[in-house]
Simulated scan of single mutants.
Amino acid sequence: MFGRERTPFHVVIKAAFEEARQRGDRRMGTEHLLLGLLHEPRAARALGVDVAGARAALEELDKAALRMLGLEVGDMPRVPRKHPPVPGTALTSSARAVINQAIKGTTMKTRSAEAPRHLVLALLQQGRPDPVAQLVDQLGIDRAAVRSRIA
């Protein structure tokens, strides 16, 4: 779906798919898009978060969700497991909508450079119960401040 292109936007999308694979998720969601964006240095600076901190916050959200179901998990082992790649068409409906919104916010000439910025803006617009909204809140990202920095 996203080919072998090396534009910043494609690098972000591929990183998001890799983040989903590493977590063992079957589909790429908006939370993975945020993690993928953090592989892009300008986006990480604008958001004021690093990828390791975002991964830890997402793991904490997962544990909290399990506790709400009555399942207590201790420290999860750090031994990486081998997960199959997430298919390029396996996106959540929210992730697909956010990607489409980011693409529509650009022109063909500016897409490679501007799409990551539009992706950040689209992700910041997401509200609860979308996983990325919960992750943004968990990380303490000030949406208005980020919008003003990248606008």
Rank of each mutant, 00 (worst) to 15 (best):
G36K: 00
H32K: 03
L38H: 00
R21W: 02
M28Y: 02
A20E: 04
A15M: 06
G3E: 13
R26C: 08
A16F: 02
R27E: 15
L33T: 01
E5C: 06
F17N: 03
V11I: 10
E5L: 11
H10C: 05
V11H: 07
K14H: 10
G29A: 14
E5M: 07
H39A: 15
A15E: 07
G29V: 06
H32Y: 06
P8Q: 03
L37K: 00
G36A: 05
R21M: 09
H10V: 02
G3T: 10
G3Y: 06
F17H: 13
M28G: 11
A20H: 01
L38E: 01
V11L: 11
A15I: 03
F9Q: 01
G3F: 10
R23A: 15
Q22G: 14
L35T: 03
T7P: 02
I13P: 02
M28D: 08
H32D: 09
K14C: 02
R27M: 14
H32F: 03
F17L: 15
T7K: 01
R23E: 15
K14I: 01
E18F: 05
E18H: 10
H39D: 13
P8Y: 07
M28A: 15
I13N: 00
R23H: 14
R26G: 14
F9W: 13
T30F: 07
R4H: 11
D25H: 15
R21P: 04
G3V: 10
R26E: 15
L38M: 06
R4A: 14
R6M: 08
V12C: 08
L38Y: 02
L33G: 00
L35W: 03
R21G: 06
G29T: 10
A15T: 04
G29P: 07
G29I: 09
F17W: 12
V11W: 03
V12T: 06
G24I: 12
G24M: 13
E18L: 12
R21F: 03
K14Y: 05
L33F: 05
G24N: 10
R26M: 12
R27I: 13
A20F: 03
G29M: 11
A15P: 04
R26P: 04
E18N: 12
E31T: 10
I13R: 00
D25V: 12
E5W: 08
R27H: 14
L34T: 04
D25C: 13
D25T: 08
E18C: 06
M28R: 07
E5V: 04
E31V: 10
H32P: 05
P8E: 05
H10L: 11
E5K: 07
L33H: 05
H39Y: 11
A16D: 02
P8A: 11
L33S: 01
L37I: 09
R6T: 11
M28L: 15
H10I: 02
V11M: 06
H32T: 04
E31N: 11
R23Y: 12
E5R: 09
H10P: 00
V11G: 03
G24F: 12
H39K: 15
H32S: 07
H10N: 14
E31F: 08
R4T: 13
F17C: 10
R26Y: 11
Q22H: 13
G3M: 12
L38V: 01
K14R: 14
P8H: 08
L35F: 09
E31L: 09
D25L: 12
F9T: 03
G24H: 11
E31K: 12
V12Q: 01
E19H: 12
F17T: 07
H39L: 08
G29Q: 07
E18R: 08
E19M: 11
T30W: 08
V12G: 00
G36Y: 00
